[in-house]
Each structure stands twice: as C-alpha cells, then as structure tokens.
Design a protein around this nucleic acid. Structure first.
Lengths: 356, 356
DNA sequence: CTGAAAGCGCTTACAG
DNA sequence: CTGAAAGCGCTTACAG
C-alpha cells in the first residue's frame, strides 16, 4: 500500500525480455511483430508478456519509426451533423487501415484552427484532414505542407494550395436547387447563410465569404438567377444568420422588404433549422407563403410539417474519400493533387410549392 | 529537388542549439520553458528557433515526462447529438486546462470499446472518459484502473468499479416524465428503447439492459407506474427500436395490442425521432391519439408539429463536470470516488394531451 | 535465428 | 546560469 498514488511504472520490453530470459532485441521482435524469431522463443516471450500484461508504448514506437499511425481531423463544428457524419466516414476507413483519428474542433475560428494544426503536427500525426475556416488565410496550412505532412482539404478548397481536396459540387447543387424553385415559378429567391455579417447585409464581394463552399453555392445561385433574368440576385444573398436570434432578424427584415422573397435557400442544415423556426414564429406558412430548400439531409428535415426539401450531399462518402486520399498520400502516392467534387441530388419533399 | 518525396527531417533541439551556438541542454531549457536561462542566451535561442521554424516533438516530450497532455474519450455514438454535446463540454474544459482530446467511437460495441481502450492507453493518454457500452463487462476498464490510468465514467455507472462517474438523474427523470403523463390521465404508457431485443420483446430481466442509464430509466418508469396501481408496467417496456424499420414494427405491434398504450416515453432522442416518424407513418396523431415524451432536448423536437415535450438533461454540463473530475484525478486528487448525478427537468411542449 | 549497440528528440538530475 | 551524460521505451541496422 505504500505507493498507492504513484503511477505504477508500466512493463516494458526489457521487463518481458528478462522474464523470458532472452535479449531485449528478441523480445522486441516478437512483441513488435517484426524480424524473425524461432517458434520456441516466440512462445516463451508471448507467455511472459501475457503474464506481465505487457502493453506496447505506442509513443516510443512512434519515436523510433517516425510514424504515429494517427491522422488528425480538424472540423468546423463537431456538433453539426454534417461534420459528425463526415467524421464517421473518415474514421471508418482510417480504422480499417489501422489508423487512429484525433479530432479537433475549430469552431470555425482561424486561431483555434492554427493551434490545432500546431498541436497535431507536434504529436506527429501522419496526415491531416482539415476544413479550412478561412480559405483566404492558410499560412498554417502551407507550413504543414512544407514540413511534409500530407494534407487533404475537406468540404472547401484553396486553389492556390497544391493539395488534394474533397468537396460537394456546391455550385451545381445551388444551381439545381435554384432552378427547381424557378420551375415552380419563383423569381424572388433569397439565399441565407450564417457567415459573418450584419442583419440585412447582402453579398457584394467575395471577401465576405471566406468559405469556398458557401461562395460556390452563392455563385451558383446568382448564376441561375441571372440566367432567369434576375440581375440583382446578390441583394437577396443574406449573411449573419449565426444563431436563432439573428436568423429571426434576418428573415423578418427580408420578408418586410418591398421585394420580399417567395422562396428561401438555406446554406446549411443549421441555418435551415433556424429559418424554419423563424418562419414558424412569424406565422408564415411553408410552403404556401414561402418555399424552402435547405442544404444537407438532416434528421429534422424529415419530421417537420411539411417535411423540407433538401440538397442531399454524400457526406459520408466524402469523408471516406478524403481519408482514402490521405492514406494513399501517407503511403507515398505521388499522383497529382486532385480536387474531387461529388455530385449532389435534390430530395423533393413538401416545402416547395408553386409561386402564386 | 532531389528529395522531393522524402519527408524532410524535422528540426530538433540539437539543430537550434547548434544554430544558437549553445548546448543542447540550454536550448532545450528555453524551448521547453523550464529551468533558468539568461536573457541574452534566451533571445539567441528564440531567434534561432524562429529562423529554423522549430516545432517541439510532443511525442519525445511525452516520452521524457511520462505525461502526454491528452485525454481519451470513448463515446457510444458520436453522431448522436447527446454525445457530441457532451464532447464539446469535455473539450472546452480540457482545452482550457491545456489538454488535448482524442475521441474514439465504440458504436456501442464492447469489442470496439476494448480495442479503443488499449489503443489510448498505448498512446499514453493521461486519463480516460468512457461511456461503457456494457455495464456488466468491464475487465478492460478494471485493467485501465489497475494500470493507473485515471478513469471517469460518463452517462453510465458500474457500481462495483471504484471510479468517478457523472450521469443524469435517470431514475428520477423517468419517474417525473411518467408522473406527468399520469397526471394527464394516462395509465397505459409504453417505454421504448433501442437496446437489443426482438420486436415485441418486453422487459423481464435486468440483464436485457446492460446500459445502466437505460435500466435506471426503466426502473423509474416501472416504479412510477406501480405507484399508480399499474403492476405490469414492465410489459410495456419494449426493446429493439434500433432503427426506423424496427421502430415501425415495435410501434405498430404495440398499438395493435389489446391494451394499446395511450402514451409513449422514448429512451433517447434517436428513438424519439423514430417513434415520431412511425406514428406519422401509421397516421396516428400526436397528441390526440398518443402522447409522446422523449429523453434529450434534441433539435428536431422543437420543429415538429406538435413540438415534442422532453426530459432535458444538462449534457454539456455533464461533459464539463466529467472532464473537471478527470483533470483533478490526473492532478493527483485523492478524494473518494464519487458519482455525480445531475438533476434533469421536463420541458413541456405540445406532445402531451389529456387521456380521453 | 539471436544479441549488443546506437538512435529517435526530448527532459531530468548532477556537476561545474 | 550553463554543460555533459543518462534515460524514456521502443526500432533499426550491424554482427555473430
């Protein structure tokens, strides 16, 4: 009972070697599963290891080999189902390949993302999958690349950074959703995003949307509207729907304007949920008064009345592909960097009606 | 361009020391922030480190110090909002204390949980927070404790394991929810869980519910019903609502029985969502025909028609407390192991009506 | 097939 | 305040 608090020293290769009466090197060979050992010796070592409850110290192993068997994943918001689904896709392929995953949450903040990168590189992850919170500021990502850490971008791209990326076909998706609304007769369509902005602020410059996926969607939206003869669609691209309160303000302002929209496209499922609630609060009926389409096939979209039509992104598959790409790089693949853009589809439910 | 593919050797303390023309030891002192160094030397070293873009190798650091600055978290299902919220609570306090978090997903499978534990201990995490998938099989957890790794149980307890635990007051919560239903005149109330079981299988033995939180809720439910004169409440405790399809079967069977329930208590928000969908599919109106209460204040419960009344568990706070407890243990706290059971509250929305 | 030595990049006593 | 040496627990050549 004397060293009740002292962390028991863990048993090492040396301990096992002594117990098995062999050299450290041989014990290490069977414990580490490399080199060749006679069956007799192997059995002795295995028995000793079992007896002592030997557990390899992966840290030491990583120090020697230079590989950690771990990949780091930095997501914008782990509470967002979009990201947790992606993380599962990533984890599934990583685990199958014998890799572990360290997850870090940036909260969409650049500084948090930067320190997460430092930390993960410090822990010598074998590779990194990151959702850049700001596609315009990426010195920390360039550094990672320069240091030689394989990197795959997820959901967003940074064209001037020569790395692999896996995203949805955001521009096409937004165009398809917009056209669907147009075909139902809508001309005044609003696009709502949580990206920073004052209530009422609309899209005038790319610099307002540092997230490439959102920018792509907005551009697709504007292009589709423009093709339909609407030239000031950007005025209906509204920022600042960061939480319920702000979304309420954004939506009620929008609906009180002279050219109030008859349909709303929500940039992601969090915004979509907030928009749906705002509409409920304002007593605006969906789809009779306002039609709604949200990005991402989230749980909640299926149980509302009416259920909400969505842009279905193959998020799990995106996660899988990002991980596969990364593992290939870790494995030394030198194929040219590619940007995989996965097609999305529209799921028609009850939130879109003909514009009267 | 010669070693384009070879991972550039990273810069070490020795490199910085040479560049700064000091000994490895002094360079290490300023880089590691320990010991004392003259300002002049410090500046020289810092300049050299900046010049070379030195990044400490946390692995080596951990090897020397025996601490990794990392805690491991094993959850049942990271895609469940309950767990991702808890993870945020944990991460928030961990980060503040300078710790990193490695998240592993057990998928509620014992074998996955066991290998995750091995792996995390192998990586020498300083402590572990785990949601045991089976409160009856915990050799792997006992091992962790024996090896000296601080462990805090989350959401579930294992009475015979002497470790800290943070859970909701599940028994009380279930009793309160049941009483609320009783006060609305309901006598035939069903409790539905995803725990393994054939469609139609009901609760007869504790061994069917290896998750202590679920067992506690079921016992609270039965006790409340019993106090109201219902002695066969256990027959209305139904297992097997593992996915939408099975839930559909469970619910339609339940409603076709002679003593069909007039109210349903859902064991968690995933089950709750599935039950809500089943009811919709069957054309059963909530709350006119069947009242519903779900555990966990999930997003979707606020946007359905009617919105769903829920047992609100302080999940984020539970996560925070678990992390604080763990950090205290890592810090050497020797206070007796405690089980923190956090009170829940009922949020009344529109899914409960008087029983006709 | 097995062993002794060196090394991964740090930190920790121990001297000066 | 600074330096030289040993050690953390493995793996990697190099010999026998």
């Amino acid at each position: 009972m004397e060293n009740i608090a002292s962390p028991k020293r863990s048993v090492t290769v040396a301990d096992v070697a002594k117990a098995a009466a062999v050299s450290k090197a041989t014990a290490a060979r069977v414990l580490g599963g490399y080199g060749t050992v006679s069956d007799k010796v192997r059995d002795k070592v295995i028995a000793a290891a079992a007896e002592l409850e030997y557990r390899p110290n992966e840290l030491a192993r990583s120090m020697s080999t230079g590989k950690s068997g771990t990949i780091g994943v930095i997501v914008g918001d782990i509470e967002n189902a979009f990201f947790s689904l992606a993380v599962r896709g990533i984890s599934d392929v990583a685990r199958t390949a014998g890799f572990n995953v360290i997850i870090a949450n940036s909260g969409e903040e650049l500084s948090a993302e930067q320190s997460a990168i430092d930390l993960l590189i410090g822990r010598r992850v074998d590779g990194l999958i990151v959702t850049p919170s700001n596609c315009g500021e990426y010195d920390h990502l360039s550094n990672a690349v320069r240091v030689g850490v394989p990197l795959v971008l997820f959901d967003r791209t940074i064209p001037s950074l020569k790395v692999d990326a896996v995203t949805g076909a955001d521009r096409d998706a937004a165009m398809a959703a917009t056209r669907h609304l147009q075909e139902a007769g809508h001309r005044r369509i609003a696009y709502v995003t949580a990206r920073e902005g004052a209530v009422g602020e609309f899209f005038t410059s790319e610099s307002q949307l540092p997230t490439s996926s959102v920018l792509q969607r907005v551009q697709g939206f504007i292009e589709a509207q423009s093709a339909n003869g609407i030239d000031d669609a950007h005025r209906h691209v509204r920022l600042g729907a960061s939480d319920q309160e702000h979304t309420d303000a954004v939506i009620s302002l929008l609906l009180s304007e002279p050219a109030a929209p008859t349909a709303i496209l929500a940039s992601d499922s969090l915004v979509g949920l907030q928009v749906f609630r705002s509409l409920q609060t304002l007593g605006v009926s969906v789809p009779e008064q306002v039609s709604v389409i949200s990005f991402f096939n989230a749980d909640w979209t299926t149980v509302t009345s009416p259920p909400v039509s969505v842009v279905d992104q193959p998020v799990y598959e995106m996660g899988r592909l990002a991980a596969e790409r990364l593992l290939a790089r870790i494995d030394g693949s030198e194929t040219p960097e590619t940007h995989l853009s996965l097609a999305t589809s529209l799921i028609h439910r009850g939130s879109v009606a003909r514009c009267k």
